[in-house]
Design a protein around this nucleic acid. Structure first.
Lengths: 117, 117
DNA sequence: TCGTCTGTTTAGGTGTCACTTTACACTCGA
DNA sequence: TCGAGTGTAAAGTGACACCTAAACAGACGA
């Protein structure tokens, strides 16, 4: 079940075309071959590695974390954070799982505050 | 730089021996060959796949998230949670990064409370 | 000294990921 | 009609994840 995955390619193709960037040009900026990008955009190949996804995000003006999620990945920076304190972070994420966006934003603000002092 | 990794094998060997479980017995319970487990325990092979790590954790009585971290991994369940709301979760984790254990515990409690209502 | 434990060495093996190269087919303006 | 641009098809590659089977060496009790 890779529903999220299936749409990554279609999404970036749409955004690329909206920005009127050629496939070869985009491929060059990302640092991959045009052939490969073509397959990725038609979801024949899975999304590329994290660094490539980040470059794509920058080019099409999307949030990197969001695009990584669409690619079925999580920023390695975030998994690093979790690995530093696995138990607390795991508890936390499970607790947070069902919350609304507002509740989460509130918690993030509290975290910022706790940090600031 | 796989410092965390290097110690996974040594750690589970120590715990296994403390519990007086033979290598072959352990291997059987986990569902791998004794050969493989031997190499893993001497850190000649990287830690096994997530499900195997979980079984090891259960056998030696360790927290699965902690052992997964030692194995250089994060529970796929947790990355799933992040992928559902990447922006909020990313903001949050970055905000939480520098906090003390107490601050984090406090936030987790608040999350629980927000959820409960 | 034989059988049976223990862990270890050697020597693979398969599958997946993340790509590349080469060659091709189409369209369109000059 | 040509050449310069678009995207695409087919095949292959190198590295790594994740493991296995067969054989062996040493200790230990009967």
């Amino acid at each position: 079940m890779k529903v999220g995955r299936e749409k990554f390619g279609a999404f970036i193709r749409r955004e690329r075309e909206a920005k009127e960037i050629g496939l070869r040009e985009m491929a060059k900026k990302i640092g991959v071959s045009p052939t490969y990008l073509s397959k990725v955009e038609r979801d024949e190949f899975p999304p590329p590695a994290e660094d490539k996804v980040r470059k794509i995000a920058a080019i099409i003006g999307q949030d990197a974390d969001e695009l990584l999620a669409l690619a079925g990945r999580v920023a390695s920076e975030l998994t690093d954070i979790i690995r530093e304190r696995p138990r607390e972070m795991a508890d936390f994420l499970r607790a947070v799982k069902g919350l609304t966006a507002e509740d989460m934003a509130r918690l993030a603000r509290q975290a910022q505050k706790a940090k600031g002092k």
